[in-house]
């Protein structure tokens, strides 16, 4: 059989005027037999498979690591500080005597910044998303989008700088009662930071509303405004809310800008002109100092980190859930 095959081949080669014929290593058997490389193949394919599996598993290990470390240190923290005091106390002074471990001021500061940045970012972000998705010409979109990408790429510490050097003086000019460090300047810069996120996510959602829905509304004699506000936005509403959630979760986890702009005085206040402290800023404050390992003060960062992790995780999971349902809706 093999001889017959090669005989045929040679005749063809002669027709083509070829001199030598390179033969592929070839077996007439189907079983794995020939060559060391071939015999080793299942082995090295298996090794590669395993290595890649390890790469993918690392992400799970990271999550497990975060949870274990935060829980482990927090549990030790709660041996020293009652969990009730931690969750309900209204004073947070772990680094001063007398020590108080009530996280509410930090939570309040974090929520103040999150809410304030949402007030800044949501209207502008939604308006921009609607304009880009529904009104803008493709050319205009192509021009604006890179700017938004740049805005998204500016590091957080730069926003912190701008809050102190640019935004804070303006706020103090408008409201003389405001301090150098105030929540309002943090709100504004964090709002700008999360803008690109709201815009790109909401725009994707708006674009995913089927054209047929718009067409149907236009066919009923609705004008552009009515189609957008009464049909497109309501259809995309859950997705838009998910994008807000993701952006606000980002604002909660935002660190450098808030640390620089909002100050370091944990306070239970809703006045944006006062200096406050967020959970993230507190972690930075402790990390910068020389707090000895194993002390209660040191463990506070894990307890605060745990609160931060839980808050952002819950918001992210809800947003992901909404988004996954939106994805199914139009499939």
């Amino acid at each position: 059989m093999t001889e017959e095959g090669s005989g045929k081949e040679q005749s063809v080669e002669m027709e083509l005027g070829e001199a030598a014929v390179i033969k592929l290593p070839r077996s007439t058997s189907l079983a794995r037999a020939d060559g060391l490389l071939v015999r080793l193949r299942p082995f090295y394919e298996g090794v590669i498979h395993f290595a890649l599996f390890i790469c993918a598993s690392i992400s799970v290990l990271v999550t497990v690591g975060i949870v274990i470390i935060l829980l482990y240190e927090s549990v030790q923290f709660f041996f020293d500080v009652s969990i009730i005091e931690f969750l309900t106390g209204t004073r947070w002074t772990p680094l001063l005597k007398p020590q108080h471990f009530g996280i509410l001021p930090l939570m309040c500061g974090t929520m103040l910044v999150a809410a304030g940045s949402a007030i800044v970012a949501v209207p502008i972000g939604l308006g921009t998303a609607i304009y880009l998705s529904e009104y803008a010409s493709p050319r205009f979109r192509d021009i604006v989008k890179p700017f938004l990408e740049i805005l998204a790429g500016i590091p957080s510490v730069v926003y912190g700088y701008l809050a102190i050097v640019t935004v804070s003086p303006i706020i103090r000019y408008l409201f003389p009662s405001a301090g150098v460090f105030n929540a309002a300047s943090a709100c504004i810069v964090v709002g700008i930071m999360i803008l690109p996120m709201i815009i790109s996510l909401s725009e994707d959602i708006l674009q995913s509303v089927p054209l047929s829905l718009r067409g149907a509304a236009f066919a009923l004699g609705a004008n552009k405004f009515e189609v957008t506000v009464r049909v497109v936005v309501p259809a995309a509403l859950s997705g838009i809310i998910a994008s807000f959630l993701l952006a606000i979760s980002r604002a909660i986890g935002e660190t450098m800008a808030v640390t620089l702009a909002a100050g370091a005085t944990p306070k239970l206040t809703l006045n944006p002109l006062e200096s406050i402290q967020t959970m993230t800023a507190y972690i930075v404050q402790v990390s910068q100092g020389d707090t000895p390992t194993g002390t209660v003060e040191y463990r506070t960062i894990f307890a605060v980190g745990l609160m931060l992790f839980i808050t952002t995780m819950v918001m992210n999971v809800i947003a992901q859930y909404i988004l996954s349902r939106v994805g199914e809706q139009y499939e």
Binding site: S27, S29, L30, A31, R32, V38, R41
Partner: peptide, 13 residues
């Protein structure tokens, strides 16, 4: 030779 045999090497096949 059986194509769907456990000894068959898919790559060779």
């Amino acid at each position: 030779q059986e194509i769907y045999s456990s000894r068959t090497d898919i790559v060779t096949l």
